[in-house]
Computed example of a mutant assay.
Amino acid sequence: MQIQPVLKKFALLNQYPSLIHAFSTRKGGVSDPPFHYLNLGLSTADDPERVKANRRLFFEALNIKEDRLVFPQQVHSANIQIVKKAGVVAECDALITDTPNLFLTVQTADCFPVFVYDPQNKVTAVIHSGWRGTAQNIVGKTIRAMRETFRCAPQNILVGIGPGVQKSCYQIDEKTAQYFDKQFLSPDGPGHFKLDLLEAIVLQLTEQGVLLEHIERDATCTHCATDEYFSYRRDGNYSGRMMGVIGMVK
């Protein structure tokens, strides 16, 4: 078993030496099946001590001290918080900071993790965007908050969208479909549709002025990539969690 975490990064963000970012896969780590191996979710039924060990491996691989982390208490909302210190932020699905050596985190297992960086104003953000958050335009609202609070110019903002459940595997019912424009929906049997959540997120970004060439996507489907990513839609309560992190060092 490979213990060292296998991490992914965005080329668009990787060009800045003072920016640390990554999102995890399920490869590496110490958890036993069905949470094998790099489960980073303490809310799962996995052994908490193994999850804590996995987190240590993850953050050590990035040279991040755990007392400099911010954890949003994700509730599938459009709540956004500007943070200046480490800790847990209640009922929140997006974090923004201009504080160096403060690292923002997000956990996913089908929802999309969105990483945001303004290299001009030195502002970072991270967003948890599942269908509920996307229906409430959490990504667009986060970009707007960066503009209003930190005077970030949208054309300078860079975005990496991590892996999530892709349209081919994302069937929804009519009740959920009503929250989305028809351009993101494809009929999939009586009363059901396939939802392109990734493209809905991209539109929210460009509507706020983010340039399309400043958006990098990992189009891997978490539901399909059984050996690479956890998926709640695929595995239910036996699914672990991936984690993303972004922050600036002095």
Rank of each mutant, 00 (worst) to 15 (best):
residue 1 M to R: 14
residue 6 V to Q: 14
residue 9 K to Q: 12
residue 14 N to M: 03
residue 16 Y to Q: 00
residue 18 S to R: 13
residue 18 S to A: 13
residue 23 F to P: 04
residue 24 S to H: 13
residue 26 R to F: 02
residue 31 S to Q: 04
residue 32 D to R: 08
residue 33 P to W: 10
residue 34 P to V: 10
residue 34 P to F: 14
residue 36 H to W: 13
residue 38 L to N: 09
residue 40 L to D: 00
residue 41 G to E: 03
residue 41 G to Y: 09
residue 44 T to P: 12
residue 46 D to I: 01
residue 49 E to C: 05
residue 50 R to L: 15
residue 52 K to H: 11
residue 54 N to E: 06
residue 56 R to E: 15
residue 56 R to L: 14
residue 57 L to D: 00
residue 57 L to E: 04
residue 58 F to W: 12
residue 60 E to Q: 15
residue 64 I to A: 02
residue 67 D to F: 12
residue 68 R to L: 04
residue 69 L to M: 12
residue 70 V to L: 04
residue 71 F to I: 14
residue 71 F to C: 06
residue 72 P to E: 08
residue 73 Q to S: 13
residue 73 Q to K: 13
residue 76 H to P: 00
residue 77 S to W: 03
residue 78 A to V: 10
residue 84 K to Q: 15
residue 85 K to F: 09
residue 87 G to Q: 15
residue 87 G to F: 12
residue 88 V to F: 14
residue 89 V to Y: 06
residue 92 C to M: 03
residue 94 A to M: 05
residue 99 T to L: 05
residue 105 T to Q: 00
residue 107 Q to Y: 00
residue 107 Q to G: 07
residue 108 T to Q: 11
residue 116 V to N: 09
residue 123 V to F: 05
residue 124 T to F: 00
residue 124 T to G: 07
residue 124 T to P: 10
residue 128 H to D: 01
residue 128 H to A: 10
residue 129 S to F: 05
residue 132 R to C: 08
residue 135 A to V: 11
residue 138 I to C: 11
residue 139 V to R: 08
residue 140 G to C: 03
residue 141 K to D: 07
residue 146 M to L: 06
residue 146 M to A: 01
residue 149 T to L: 00
residue 153 A to T: 11
residue 162 G to Y: 04
residue 162 G to E: 03
residue 163 P to C: 09
residue 163 P to D: 06
residue 167 K to A: 07
residue 167 K to T: 08
residue 168 S to F: 11
residue 171 Q to T: 15
residue 172 I to E: 01
residue 179 Y to G: 04
residue 180 F to Q: 08
residue 181 D to K: 04
residue 181 D to Y: 03
residue 182 K to I: 02
residue 183 Q to K: 13
residue 185 L to T: 09
residue 185 L to Y: 06
residue 185 L to N: 08
residue 196 D to N: 14
residue 197 L to M: 07
residue 197 L to F: 07
residue 197 L to G: 11
residue 199 E to K: 04
residue 200 A to L: 04
residue 202 V to G: 04
residue 206 T to E: 10
residue 207 E to D: 10
residue 208 Q to F: 08
residue 209 G to S: 09
residue 214 H to I: 00
residue 215 I to M: 07
residue 216 E to P: 03
residue 217 R to A: 04
residue 218 D to K: 03
residue 218 D to A: 08
residue 219 A to S: 15
residue 219 A to Q: 10
residue 224 C to M: 13
residue 226 T to V: 14
residue 227 D to G: 14
residue 229 Y to M: 02
residue 229 Y to L: 01
residue 230 F to L: 02
residue 236 G to P: 11
residue 240 G to D: 09
residue 241 R to E: 06
residue 241 R to D: 04
residue 242 M to I: 06
residue 244 G to W: 12
residue 246 I to H: 00
residue 247 G to A: 07
